[in-house]
Amino acid sequence: MLKSTFPWLIVAVTGCVMIAAFFVPPLAEWKNEAGAWFEILAAMAFVVGGANLFAQHLKKISARRAGWGYSAVTLFSFVVTLVVGLFKVGVIGEDPNYPWAGHYQAEGSALWWLYQFAYQPLIGTMFALLAFYVASAAFRAFRAKNTEATMLLTAAFIVLLGRTYAGTWLTSAVPDDYSALTFPGMTAIILGVFNTAGQRAIMIGIALGVAATSLKVLLGVDRSYLGSDGD
């Protein structure tokens, strides 16, 4: 009962409040209040997440499981970042007598340094890996196996060329009156017409899926996310 019905009641009441707030202007503020509650819960969950992270990695280190060295690095980075951020290490405020009044990410602070010279390059590197994965996927997966795949490939060729100077250069001889026949022109048509039509169809499907799932959640028809399906 406590494990399934009570959480579902919270879900149902909050959902109904959100719906009512959308249609009844004086209740609009409730929508903001519900959002604020979610933020509070999510902030509390940070503590749960942090504790779990600590427990997992400490277990791994103490048991000397394979890769325990990585866990040590993770915990060290976690603690260092937390400490320099919380205690505003190296922050110099406008008034040097009150350095804590400065912003925690103020230029020159320890957290700023970590962000600038560790976090930013690492995250940028991970994102840049995409270029390599796109290239390998292009070689391995984009095959003209049937008519649909061939059409997809043709569209990909046009857009790849149309989004660079190569497309402009290759069709530079085409008169301006026939600009739709240039690679950039065809790219604009593919993105603006065919892509838009497909995107809208998918969006409508997703929106209806979201509505139906939300309704199932509100009515308590599907409670598998509460871990109590057969309750």
């Binding site: 290239a135 292009a138 070689f139 391995r140 984009f142 003209a144 660079t164 100077y165 190569a166």
Partner: peptide, 24 residues
Amino acid sequence: RMAPQFWAHLLIIGLIVLGNVVYF
């Protein structure tokens, strides 16, 4: 930054073509 993108796009086109050569 459009210059690296230009060559990257051409490389991807080349890779798709090569992949399809293998396939056919």
